[in-house]
Every structure is written in C-alpha cells, then in structure tokens.
C-alpha cells in the first residue's frame, strides 16, 4: 500500500529518513566491540545475552507493530508471485496455476497500459515543473514576514488543506470549476461560453496539478521553513555589513543554505515519479475519461480488481514497484554526483 500513498507523504518522509542515517554513526562512536580476538568475542557473546535479557521488555513492545508490518507489508511482497500466476481467489495464492511471464507479455502489448505509463510520466513532469517550486517560493516569502503572529496565522491557513481528503478537495474544485460551479455561473452571467474544467481531458494535467498545489503546497513549506530557520543569522548580518542587499543575501546565503533540502525533495519527487495521486485520479476518472485519467496505479486497480483479473493488475503493480526502486536509486546517484546526501549517504 505504501507505494500508492499520494505525493503528500514526500516531505514527511524526507526528514524522517534524514534522521535515520545518523544512528549507525552514533553507535560506532559509542564503540561496538567488533575488534579483537577470541577473548573479545567471548565477552561480546555474554554481553549479547545480557543485553537480550536487559532489553526483552523493549523488544516485546515492538512486537505489535512488527506483526502488523509483517502481515500487511511483507506478506504482500511475497504475494507478488501472483503476477506470475493465473490467480484464482477460490484456490488461493499457493495453489493457483503458474504461468511465468504471460501476464507481462500481455501487459506490454496492451495499448491501455502504455497510455497509463504515458499519463503517469506526463503528469509527473508537469507537477515537477509547476508544483515543485511553489513551496520553496512560499517558504522564502513567509520567512521574510517579520511579525510572528501574521506568519503563524498564514501558515495555519495554508497547512489546512493538507488534512482534507481527496474526495473533499475534488468536491471543492467541482463547486468552483465544474459545470454548475462558480466559474461557469460567472461565465454564463457575462454571456461567455461555459467551460467545464472538470471534464475537459485536454487541460486535465493542469487541473490535477492545481489540485495538488491547493492541497499540498502549503504543507510542503514546512520542510523549507525548517531549512531556512537552520541558517545562521550571523551570516546575514555579516553579509549586510559587507554591503550585500536583500537579493544578494538571498542568492548567496539563503539559497545555498536550502540546497541540501531542495536536492533531497527533488530526489524524493523523482523517486516517486510513478506515483501521482492515486485517489485523485480514481475519483475523477469517470468525469474526464480513462484516456486522460488512467495512471499506473489506477490501471492496476481497474484492470486488476475491477475485472477480477488480479494477476494482470499485480503484474502492472510489480512493474511500477521495480521501476520506482530503480528511479530512487538513480535519483540518489544524481544527488551524490552533486555532492549532496540525498536519501542515504554514499
């Protein structure tokens, strides 16, 4: 399921993952008894057992979470074998007929599948170009607001839509831009040809991008605000003393200070290039038609579960997962090439 969470999870994941890599360092600094001969090994085995006894309550506490993760995350990973089977719900995963790569052969010859791939990549590209810079600009703007009260109020307002469901967001857009919405009431009132934005396939990519911006751009600001807050104010003061104006300070201090976070978010975005608002597409598919709204996730849903051809959908899902992993790896290589950490260090 994790693979189909919407793009909004991006910024949240980013800082959690940035936390993770420092754990090994801390442990190494604390000194693990890895070096030494048999005597050291002997001591280590005793301490291991002692540590196990000491920490058994802590281990016990992790069991409920581990159990849920094993059942609902790891079992499905083994469930990908259904992609190589002709899965029959009545006989189960273990006893379904194994058919090798037939599902994939069928998939790669399916024009609907390639439409879904194309839509996914195109929507991702539009979002990268039009969505990605907005939280950065908003953060820069908010950061220059001196009054704490105003800044807190504005951020409270722009974070809010992040907590709305996609159904709610699309209902709002429907009322604003739909056939009976505010925009068309205005157009009709002024005798202009009405334009139902919600059912127009030609502008659908822009529509979904603007929905994503409305819902998540405010929330995306948090990560960049944090990066801005971490910049040493003394740098600004020194630059100002040297005669740098506010634009020069932004160029030479603010932007370099944000570089790491920007690259990290970019890596995440590229790694998630195949994940574009699953529920968002699902809800609007009927209105705008499947040629425009089918992406990889909805393809797996409609042609897997909708038609009870589960193995076919599983094959499409597996294709997506594999390409996504390659993308994350590639994006990280790219980040390392630019001298940044990315998701994990080299």
């Amino acid at each position: 399921m994790a693979a189909i969470t919407t793009g909004g999870a991006g910024p949240e994941r980013a800082d959690a993952l940035a936390v993770a890599p420092d754990a090994p360092d801390a442990r190494a600094a604390a000194g693990s008894p890895r070096e030494g001969g048999s005597g050291a090994r002997q001591r280590r085995r005793i301490t291991r057992r002692a540590r196990l006894r000491r920490d058994k309550t802590l281990l016990l506490m992790t069991i409920p979470a581990l159990a849920l993760v094993v059942v609902f995350n790891y079992l499905p990973m083994f469930g990908v074998i259904t992609a190589f089977e002709f899965y029959d719900p009545l006989v189960g995963v273990m006893h379904s007929q194994f058919i090798g790569l037939d599902n994939f052969r069928q998939l790669f010859g399916d024009p609907l599948f390639w439409t879904a791939v194309e839509n996914t990549l195109a929507i991702s590209a539009v979002q990268l170009a039009l969505y990605f810079p907005i939280p950065i600009m908003l953060a820069l703007l908010l950061n220059t607001v001196v009054s704490n009260k105003i800044r807190a109020f504005v951020s409270a307002v722009i974070y809010l839509p992040h907590f709305f469901s996609w159904v709610l967001v699309i209902s709002v857009f429907l009322q604003m831009l739909g056939g009976a919405g505010l925009l068309n009431a205005f157009l009709i009132h002024h005798h202009v040809t009405p334009w139902n934005v919600m059912t127009d396939p030609s502008t659908f990519k822009l529509l979904v991008t603007s929905q994503a911006v409305w819902k998540e751009a405010g929330w995306g600001v948090i990560v960049f605000l944090a990066a801005l807050a971490a910049i040493d104010p003394a740098l600004y003061e020194a630059a100002a003393a040297d005669g740098a104006g506010r634009w020069r300070r932004m160029w030479h201090i603010t932007l370099p200070g944000m570089r790491g976070v920007i690259v990290l978010m970019l890596v995440l975005r590229l790694g998630n290039a195949l994940t574009v608002g699953f529920e968002q597409m699902l809800i609007q598919r009927d209105a705008v038609g499947h040629e425009a709204a089918d992406v990889l996730d909805t393809f797996a849903f409609y042609y897997g579960i909708g038609t009870s051809n589960y193995s076919y959908g599983a094959a499409a899902g597996l294709f997506k997962s594999v390409i996504s992993l390659l993308l994350i790896y590639g994006a990280n290589r790219l980040a390392h090439a630019f001298g940044e950490d990315g998701l994990y260090r080299k």
Binding site: M1, A2, A3, I4, R13, L17, A20, A23, L59, T62, A65, L66, V69, V71, F72, N73, Y74, L75, P76, M77, F78, G79, V80, T82, Y87, P89, V93, D297, A300, F301, G304, I305, Y310, S311, G313, A314, G317, L318, K320, S321, L325, I328
Partner: peptide
C-alpha cells in the same frame, strides 16, 4: 528492527497483493 520497518517505506507488494492478503 528499524531496518525491517524502514524497508517498507521503499518496497511494497503493491495494491493487488495487499488486497489479496
């Protein structure tokens, strides 16, 4: 245990296998 948890942020069985489970 941390590793076991973090892996699930990157690798997933996908929609259909989860549905089947």
């Amino acid at each position: 245990i941390l590793m076991v948890l973090i892996i699930t942020m990157f690798v997933s069985g996908g929609l259909i296998p989860t549905f089947i489970v």
